[in-house]
Write a protein that binds this DNA or RNA. Structure first.
Lengths: 247, 247
DNA sequence: CTGCACAACTTGTCTATACAACAGAAGCAG
DNA sequence: CTGCTTCTGTTGTATAGACAAGTTGTGCAG
């Protein structure tokens, strides 16, 4: 590859690091102007497209913001909101190096509750598919998954074997995920949840409410309740992640 | 601008939408190969750089993955992990259209507890700065912020007036954030927390443990505890967000 | 002074080309 | 058959140029 100066640094990376250092030291304060594409390309003796790439990637990382016709500026640090990654429970457990298994407790059709109806765009009390599954981390019950599924989008849901395949896997296959929203809450486990997770009635739980959409509309609505003493969500934020490409 | 076909669609966007449609309909299954940059540039009668941009952006969005010398492929849907945005409490409350205020309860130096010492890279029982603040959403106590601050990085912390400026704002100014990690847990409020948040002893709370870093190292370690019945975190995932640039 | 046209500068899109780095297949020498 | 080289196709980086589109200030006509 073409290198900037014999040492192995790529040109656009060198420019990014220069700008980042100015921002991190406070040398270029919030909302101050950064050099234009043309200025950078001249100072670093690179083409405009290379300078542009540096500015572009820093913008995607939230370090800068740009407006056409005006210029590029240092973004305000409060917009550096952390992003917490939410994975499905099976991946999460396997990532810990533990063994994941799931046990199906219930799989049926039932009259749609009001909350679920509005979430999935169904009519109250019309039939909706429902599955209840306990996820185990090395034989320890970790999460109770109560899932309502739109029967118009996934008519064969009740025929599946969810001891061998999680609903998440099945739904991903038949109705590819295009969109989802989540709510994270701390709740007290109800009697039902206590029983299946084998926890006491005063133990706080993390409840993730997840609604998923496919191309045609809302597909499923799920309560994922985890025992608070056994489960936590971890997140990470790094504003100067150097390599955006080539990972 | 140059447009692909009189109608106002940008060329690289048209290519992105074409690829996305193939992926979403399942026409191009997981791990299947997508056309190379050269093939796309020929099919769409654009330059290679334009085709490349489409593939590039889809890769950043997690729809594709690419390896040099091999090709571009459809990413596995399970890698579509949702990203939950964690903002600071003041922004969160203002975004709801409510009024945020904060009351300083305690601001002192104390011997560093073991957990904090290991988090901040300090020695146990050496002095560490500590602040305790209650955040209010329209007069209702919402979050208790217990924050330990590294005295070597922020020596003037105890001299600040945290009734007029939140610790987060002050720290952002004096030690720009470069990195942070978070843990989200569901916990039961202890007696102390109950008192300040005016909640009962069995009420579950969301506790966000946040550690922040600046250029020189760990800066602060905070427990942000919110009443579960009053607070929730919301997240959103959209795998086909069309406009990556120009927002 | 006001309002409009214009110039200068910025970012955004696109092209055509070149070379580098890498992976895998093909072909050849042993 | 084994091991090596070579070739081909792929993605990655970089260049130089062109035009489009938006913003802002300048200067001129009224």
């Amino acid at each position: 590859m073409q290198r900037s100066n014999d040492s192995g640094t790529l040109k656009f990376v060198a420019i990014k690091e220069f700008i980042l250092s100015q921002v991190e030291t406070g040398n270029w304060p919030e909302h101050s102007r950064v050099p234009s594409e043309n200025e950078l390309s001249e100072q670093f003796a690179v083409s405009r497209m290379t300078a542009r790439r540096a500015l572009q990637e820093l913008t995607e990382q939230g370090v800068l913001y740009r407006t056409q016709g005006v210029g590029s500026f240092v973004a305000s640090p409060k917009s550096q909101s952390a992003l917490l990654e939410i994975r499905n429970i099976a991946d999460e457990i396997q990532a810990r190096g533990h063994f994941h298994s799931a046990q199906l407790v219930q799989l049926t059709s039932l009259p749609c509750p009001t909350v679920v109806a509005s979430a999935l765009g169904l009519i109250r009390n019309e039939p909706v598919f429902f599955s209840l599954i306990v996820h185990y981390d090395n034989q320890t019950p970790l999460q109770l998954e109560a899932r309502y599924v739109n029967p118009h989008r996934v008519p064969l849901y009740l025929q599946q074997d969810f001891n061998s395949q999680t609903p998440h896997e099945y739904l991903s296959a038949v109705a590819p995920l295009t969109e989802a929203d989540h709510i994270i809450e701390a709740v007290l486990a109800d009697e039902f949840t206590c029983k299946h997770l084998k926890i006491g009635p005063t133990e706080p739980c993390l409840r993730l409410t997840r609604r998923t959409f496919s191309r045609d509309g809302a597909v499923s609505f799920a309560y994922l309740t985890s025992a608070g003493s056994r489960y936590r969500l971890g997140g990470h934020l790094n504003i100067n992640t150097r390599p955006t490409t080539a990972n």
